[in-house]
Design a protein around this nucleic acid. Structure first.
Length: 498
RNA sequence: UCCUCGGUAGCUCAGAGGCAGAGCAAGCGGCUGUUAACCGCUGGGUCGUAGGUUCGAAUCCUACCCGGGGAGCCA
């Protein structure tokens, strides 16, 4: 089979492509069919006098997403998508598709989500799934090349592991069971067997969160390393992200282009050298005069941008009356864009005082909110690592800082451009008695954790690990504004189909 | 759970007390290089649901349903 992505190897040859009609245009004796075969899109030109009557009739019958087999000569053509086009000699229909619901025009989120099974065929969704695939490949490559063993943690668990978040409950042969919220504890057991391991699997959270960063079912990658301390953990997390970003920049230029991703910021990340700041330093930054000034400047910038947009809107609206039809459509489109941006600015202007308040009045000991995270990352182009959090807001298994008992040896990696926390990790408590004490302090049942406690009983060693959220990583690298576009069939509050 | 915005043709939206509208899609016709093609014609409606106010409600009021964005929580 010849695929569109390989057409450059077949210039001037006659080939047969099999695929679906992405879009088509016609004039009296000429048909332009944009054919989609999964690997790319190619314009196929059907000239009436170059094909049989049957083939011409078939071309006339084509509708969006009809499945076809098209034969023709490959020619280079700069005007065409992908740089090549097919001069058609024959065309056979598998099936004519009637009334395909997703047209090349605008659609709303609700409609597209209802038609997710078809939306996946659209170019941007296609590109996002390709990037997701490349990220997954990069993750396995990174760990496999470093001697890590991939393991699968169980999905059914008998206990609410960390006792904090809402888990999905289910029944397991008359017993109560939960869907896993993390494979980490099991990863620790495997790390004591193999030294270096990573899990790659689904994770479930029953939080009633309706935001652009939340899914109820998402995929997490959790490496766990025996004999690693927090610094080694952070080094690995940084190398890991740097590796993934380099792979995506290297191997997905076409996809990033389709997604209109501004790659200049990703290039900075690809060089590594992520800033590392302690939680206490982060709190100081939030409360600083500098932060207040930055926020005031943001308000000014937004206001000025709004003024400029309104002026532009007035200008083009004046032109609308005597404009030609195509220009009118262009103006309408731009007016719509301006309106959407103005809504965003308006929302920002409403929110910034709240962000300002949250940041400037931040008390040591609280956890960061979404806006605090965004503000902390704002002056950097790369992700940042925030470490040594108040132990009280972190999980029971995290080791305390020997230099300050109030602190846990935890680390969060915050992605730039407002994408928030993509990694959470820590050095684990390895002392038997201390771990028992923590379980007790958190009011967790010791019996269900007995196997976990055993890991400290038999050859306990210092060890660390972290968890990466796959969908947030995909969203960040693709520049998508919602995680629902980063997974084929997203599961979120109020969405169980398709 | 709370705050906020929305639901009008298959889709995207306008209409904000007085005749239900546009663009795209669909159907028909035209056009030899289009590329969200273009031009002409045609068909297309439970204005989210239920009540209320009014001579008259898509428009005002109340309740409910569904969706978007955000808070809390988190990756």
């Amino acid at each position: 089979m010849v695929y569109i992505t390989n057409l450059s190897d077949h210039v001037d040859e006659e080939v047969t492509l099999k695929g679906w009609v992405y879009n088509y245009r016609s004039s009296k004796n000429l048909y332009f069919v944009e054919l989609r075969d999964g690997s790319g899109i190619c314009q196929c030109v059907v000239a009436k006098d170059a094909v049989s009557d049957d083939a011409w009739e078939a071309a006339e019958a084509l509708r969006q997403e009809s499945s076809v087999e098209i034969t023709g000569k490959v020619v280079e053509d700069e005007r065409s998508i992908g740089g090549h086009e097919l001069q058609v000699t024959d065309l056979n229909i598998f099936q004519v598709a009637e009334d395909y619901p997703i047209t090349p025009k605008d659609h709303g989120v609700e409609f597209l989500m209802e038609n997710r099974h078809l939306w996946l065929r659209s170019r941007r969704q296609w590109a996002a799934m390709r990037v997701r695939n490349e990220i997954i490949y990069a993750i396995h490559t990174f760990f496999q090349e470093r001697g890590f063993v991939q393991m699968d943690a169980p999905i059914f668990t008998g206990n609410a592991a960390e006792g904090t978040t809402n888990l999905f409950e289910t029944e397991y042969f008359e017993e109560e069971a939960y869907l896993t919220q993390s494979g980490q504890l099991y990863g620790e057991a495997m790390a004591m067997a193999h030294g270096l391991i990573y899990t790659f699997g689904p994770t479930f959270r029953a939080e009633k969160s309706k935001t652009r960063r939340h899914l109820t079912e998402f995929w997490m990658i959790e490496p766990e390393m025996a004999f690693y301390d927090l610094d080694m953990d952070m080094d690995l997390a940084e190398d890991f992200i740097t590796f993934i970003v380099n792979r995506v920049l290297d191997r997905c230029p076409k996809e990033l282009d389709i997604l209109d991703r501004d790659t200049s910021k990703l290039c900075k990340t690809a060089e590594g050298g992520f800033p590392r700041i302690s939680y206490s330093e982060a709190v100081e930054q939030l409360r600083s005069d500098e932060m207040a000034e930055m926020l005031d400047q943001m308000v000014e910038d937004r206001k000025q941008e709004a003024e400029e947009l309104k002026e532009e809107r007035e200008e083009i609206k004046k032109e609308h009356g005597q404009a030609k039809k195509w220009r009118k459509a262009q103006i309408d489109q731009r007016v719509k864009e301006i309106g959407m941006r103005l809504d965003e600015i308006e929302e920002d202007l409403r929110n910034i005082p709240t962000w300002r308040e949250s940041a400037l009045n931040f008390e040591w000991g609280e956890d960061f909110g979404g806006s605090d995270e965004t503000l902390l990352t704002m002056k950097y182009d790369t992700p940042i690592l925030v470490h040594r959090f108040p132990a009280e807001i972190k999980a029971f298994y995290m080791k305390r800082d020997p230099e300050d008992e109030k602190l846990a040896l935890a680390v969060d990696m915050l992605a730039p451009e407002g994408y928030g926390e993509i990694i959470g990790g820590s050095e684990r408590e390895e002392d038997l008695d201390t771990l028992k004490k923590r379980i007790d302090e958190h009011d967790l049942p010791e019996d269900v954790f007995q196997w976990y406690i055993d890991l400290r009983q038999y050859g306990s060693v210092p060890h660390s690990g972290f968890g990466l959220g796959l969908e947030r990583t995909v969203a960040w690298l693709c520049g998508l504004d919602h995680v629902r576009e980063t997974i084929p069939f997203p599961r979120m509050m109020g969405r169980l189909t398709p």
